[in-house]
């Protein structure tokens, strides 16, 4: 059973996936699954509202192209703004994760 995605983290995952190179929606999904070791369960359809939202915010942009198996597909690339946002979010996430890890590792004082 894979852990459900924390609210707000899907956007970060998508940005990260797209930052590795232009990719279509399905490719983004596969990349997230691969890189996270299949630990994150995403309802696949939920990816699209998130992609639309990020595009609307100008963090990614899209273009129609041809997929590896010669089908028409929409490819997403990271914009400069997206790159900047990704950096910030990763920084924030690391801080949060660090803090959480420390807090959860604390043992009762003897």
């Amino acid at each position: 059973m894979s852990a459900p995605v924390l609210p707000g983290t899907l956007d970060l995952l998508i940005l990260k996936a797209v930052s590795l190179g232009p990719q279509h929606g399905y490719g983004v999904l596969l990349r997230i699954e691969q890189t996270s070791g299949g630990n994150l369960g995403i309802e696949q359809g939920a990816l699209y509202p998130a992609l639309f939202r990020l595009e609307k915010q100008g963090l990614i942009e899209s273009e129609w192209g041809v997929s590896e198996n010669n089908r028409r597909a929409k490819f997403y690339t990271l914009t400069a703004a997206g790159r900047k946002r990704l950096k910030e979010e990763v920084g924030m996430w690391n801080k949060l994760a660090e803090g959480m890890t420390l807090a959860l590792a604390a043992k009762a004082a003897k």
């Binding site: 279509h24 929606g25 399905y26 999904l29 696949q44 359809g45 699209y48 997929s67 198996n69 089908r71 028409r72 597909a73 929409k74």
Partner: peptide
């Protein structure tokens, strides 16, 4: 629709 259809086919 086309984008989602592509996703379904690829899957």
């Amino acid at each position: 629709r086309e984008e989602m259809e592509f996703h379904r086919q690829a899957r």
